[in-house]
Structures are given as C-alpha cells and as structure tokens.
Design a protein around this nucleic acid. Structure first.
Lengths: 160, 160
DNA sequence: CGCTTGCTTGGAGTGCACTCCAACCTTCTA
DNA sequence: TAGAAGGTTGGAGTGCACTCCAAGCAAGCG
C-alpha cells in the first residue's frame, strides 16, 4: 500500500503532501450543558478543547460559519457552532489540511446545490482514512515484531 | 476516547503535542536490486522515496547510524541503511516526532543495554497507534453518516 | 580541454497550524 | 471607584519537518 499512487509523470512533479494532526492543549471535552445556546469564547474553548486563539483564527480563515456577537461585540457561539467544531475536529483527525476544511466550509455556505461536491470531498476523505488505517495496521505489525524481539532478548539475558 | 489523558494538574500545563505526518515527494518505492550493498544518495532517494535533502538532514540530526563514504567523500548507503530507513518510515507514519525517532536511534547506538528503554518506547508508540486507529474508526463512522445524508438528499432531489 | 552530471557543505528559507503580543474595551466584584 | 477578569483586534512569532541555495569538488565523455 503506497501513500500516493503516482504515474511516472506525476513522480517528477510530485507535490508536497502534508498532513498535520496538531492536538494542542487538548483538555478532556466537558459535556455540553443542557438548555444553553449562547457560549462565550472561553466556554467554547473548554467544551471543544481548542484555545480561544485557535477559535478566533478559525473564524478569520473562514472555517467557522459566521459567529454571532453580543451587543458589545463579543462572540456568542451556539450549539450549532459546537456541532460544527466537533465535526471539524473529526476532519482534523483524518489529517485533512485546514485549507481543505475551509473549502468544505465554503461549500456549506454556498447552499444545497453543492451537495455533490461535498459528498465527493467526504468520500475522498473516507478513502484517505482507510488508507491511513491500513498503513497503521501495517506499522502495528512491525512494532509488534520488534517488541517481541526485545522481550525475547530480555528473557534470554535474564535466564543467562 | 481522549487523545491525551490528563489529570487536572497536567491540564493547566498541557504541553504541545504535535504529531506530524509529512509525506513529501513520496514515489512508489522501487524494489531493492539484488546483490548490491552500496548505494549513492540518489539511488537511496529513489528506493526510499525520501529526497536527497532529507537523507542528508536525517544524517545531520542523528537519525542515521553513520553512513559510509567513498574515497572521494560521497555517501555510500548499505542495505542495512535501507532497512533502517524503512523502519523510520513506519515510525513516521505513526506520527512520532522526529526528535523521538532520534532518541530511539541514540538508544540503538548505545548498544544492547538499552533494550529495556527501546521496548518501552516502542510499546508507547504501539499504544499511540491503537489510539489513533480508534479515532480514525470513530471518524469513519461520522463520515459515513454524512455521506449517507448527502447521497439520500441527492436521491430525493433527483426523484422530485 | 571544456562540459555535464552528480555529489559535497553550512546555513537560510518555506509552509503549515497554530500561538502569542500589545493595546484597548467592557463587565463584574469588593 | 478601583481593580481584576474577560473580551476585542491586526500582526508578529513559534515549532516542526523539511527544502532549497550557492559555491565548490570529482568523474566521465567527445
């Protein structure tokens, strides 16, 4: 199983494929309080495990579907925003670049006529996930093999 | 399943946990030629899928176990080096930071008395891999759910 | 001989995903 | 009414893993 299927032509111009899974200051996501639908940025930070910095950054780059503001201009997130952030978190775990997530967010903003494109994007992501899982399975076998080797060697040296 | 198990104390000082899987210019790894044990850097690049730049960089940071040189000072890699690079590639797929791989390489250089530490390191890596696979499984379910939704919506609109 | 190809080096540059800073504003509590 | 706690912004900084550059050396070829 190769990571990128490439023809000889693509090999020459192979572009950088960078998948970054960055899990910064992840706190155990608290359960969402019942009957609430307006959250401050720090509440969302606590609920989502993302920093306030990251939440503002997500909004700036177009990864959030327009966040409400209070009369003083402070962000007020809704349960729908939390749902979206949870989904984005899943996409992030797949190793999808942020730019692609933004693309998906744009499609969502454009309305129902982008269902085709969204489905296609998610199906490609699905294929990527399966590939990655296969790679991890493969890696697991190698790790187990090495671990067995070390365990064996230790047993042998203890008996000696 | 949380990514980082944290006590309240660790939560405050939660350190950045960054796992980067960077698959740059990966070409389909050619099969290794038989009966050869001295490869130039470009041959290794073709065989391993890593760029010559990256191979030199790996050596500089201590991720390679001393590479032979020709009488003119050029690198001559062996089959053992290729084996090592293949293993490093597996570790990279797990999302292990390069610094940790260097640590493992150091343990290897220090000899057989580091078997304990090496086994421990690989077992931790193994646990990380299992965690990541579980996360991906979870994500797959979410993706399937969304894909079904879009497929359903499309079918409905076509029938209408 | 000149030319091309491929290798060498230290150090600087790139791209991504955050992460932080300074300066400021509003609301709450003592 | 003072001060702390929390929010706002644009823009600069960070860490990681590469990625590239300039200058130079060695080998092969017509």
């Amino acid at each position: 199983m190769t990571v990128i299927e490439s023809t000889p032509v693509e090999i020459e111009s192979a572009r950088v494929e960078s998948a970054i899974v960055s899990l910064c200051k992840v706190r155990p996501p608290h359960p969402r309080p019942e009957g609430q639908d307006r959250y401050t940025i720090s509440e969302v930070s606590a609920l989502s495990g993302l920093t306030a910095h990251t939440l503002r950054w997500y909004e700036r780059i177009g990864l959030m579907p327009h966040v409400d503001r209070s009369h003083t201009g402070q962000r007020r997130f809704t349960n729908k925003d939390l749902d979206w952030l949870a989904f984005v978190g899943k996409l992030r775990l797949t190793g999808m670049p942020v730019a692609d997530m933004v693309r998906y967010a744009e499609l969502v903003r454009e309305g129902a006529h982008t269902f085709d494109a969204r489905q296609e994007l998610l199906e490609q992501t699905r294929r990527d996930v399966l590939t990655r899982m296969a790679e991890l399975q493969d890696t697991l076998a190698v790790l187990d093999h090495k671990i067995d080797y070390y365990a064996e060697a230790r047993r042998a040296s203890e008996t000696a």
